[in-house]
């Protein structure tokens, strides 16, 4: 630190930062960081948690459910297929409403399809959704009404293919920002979201499909949950200071709840293949776990944008490291 201490602009790191440094055995003096009256440097997202974190969950649930539905259809598990198709159609419908509701100018939602732009995950996502949503809805409608079963099946396979993208592109959507907790996790979020979506879709299958057909949902749930938990743990170990945003406050509580619900749900799912009731409890726990994960990640991002520490400390370290190597 080159600047003198004292005055309103210099803050000490909170105790946890010191602990983290000691954990990693880095021998550096306790760093204070400078800020402008502790004011945020970044703007936190203007998004409503209910709309956008809700969409992160519902989009994941929908996308992976379409995959589960296609598999169930092809392997003649009509009960699981119907539950997953209806789940996907319902989740994506609510998603679209939430996404339009979240716009500052909802009546201009169609401007989302004015251009297609690879550098904008939101643009890519809008096109993906315009392909996916009609297919998911058609597949569910055909299942329920019995009209055009072959076309319905084809639509379902299309929805399954696009659904894998719907469930994962949202990772790029949040990571492609300056929000420290999101951007710093950009190597993890795609896989975390894939795991969380698969666990949620499997959970829905366990919750609502007949026990005799629930095998694939059970395996998907356990596998997805395992991926989600492992990637989350790796994220916390490796992304540096931003990891604290996932461990503290509201985000910390949500992430903890997610870990418990997902872990317990997966464990119960693994052993409940003979019990309808326990399978349902496991499924509900997994779905709730996925909700908690998405809201936890959302809150971690918001918190990391509000606290200048998450911006200044790592950037200052990066800058000093570069100066030492060039000097």
């Amino acid at each position: 630190m080159t600047e003198p201490s004292g005055g309103p602009a210099v803050s000490s790191p909170p105790p946890s930062l010191r602990r983290r440094r000691r954990d990693r055995d880095i021998v550096v003096p306790e760093a204070e960081f400078t800020s402008y009256y502790g004011a945020p440097i970044l703007k936190a997202p203007t998004w409503e948690a209910l709309d956008v974190a809700g969409y992160l969950f519902l989009g994941g649930l929908a996308g992976a459910s379409s995959g589960l539905a296609a598999g169930a259809g092809l392997s003649r598990r009509p009960g699981l297929a119907r539950v997953s198709r209806l789940g996907a159609a319902g989740a994506i419908t609510v998603s679209l409403v939430a996404l339009v509701h979240d716009l500052g100018r909802p009546l201009r939602f169609y401007n989302m399809l004015r251009i297609a732009k690879v550098t904008s995950p939101m643009s890519m996502g809008s096109w993906l959704l315009s392909g996916y949503a009609p297919l998911a809805l058609a597949s569910a409608a055909s299942d329920v009404t019995g009209i055009a079963p072959v076309l319905g099946q084809a639509a379902g396979i299309g929805a399954a293919a696009l659904g894998t993208g719907v469930a994962t592109y949202t990772a790029a959507l949040v990571a492609d920002t300056a929000t420290p907790a999101w951007h710093d996790a950009h190597r993890h979020l795609p896989f975390l979201f894939a795991g969380s979506a698969t666990a949620a879709a499997g959970g829905l299958g366990l919750l609502a499909a007949p026990l005799a057909e629930s095998g694939p949902a059970r395996r998907a749930a356990v596998g997805g949950a395992a991926v989600e938990l492992a990637v989350t743990e790796h994220l916390k170990q490796t992304i540096g200071l931003s990891a604290e945003a996932y461990e503290r406050g509201k985000a910390g509580r949500l992430m903890k709840a997610a870990e418990v619900l997902t872990g317990a749900g997966a464990a119960l799912a693994a052993v409940s293949s003979r019990s309808r009731l326990l399978s349902r409890v496991a499924g509900a726990s997994l779905v709730a776990g996925s909700v908690a994960t998405r809201f936890g990640i959302f809150e971690a991002g918001v918190e990391s944008a509000r606290d200048p520490r998450y911006v200044v400390v790592p950037q200052r370290e990066r800058l000093e490291a570069r100066r030492t190597t060039t000097a």
Binding site: G165, T168, Y169, F191, A194
Partner: peptide, 19 residues
């Protein structure tokens, strides 16, 4: 990020097929 999103999407497909 796009590459990882692609990998993760394929991961879902493979995982579900496995299930």
């Amino acid at each position: 990020m796009w590459r990882d999103v692609g990998l993760a999407a394929v991961g879902i497909a493979v995982g579900l097929a496995g299930a």
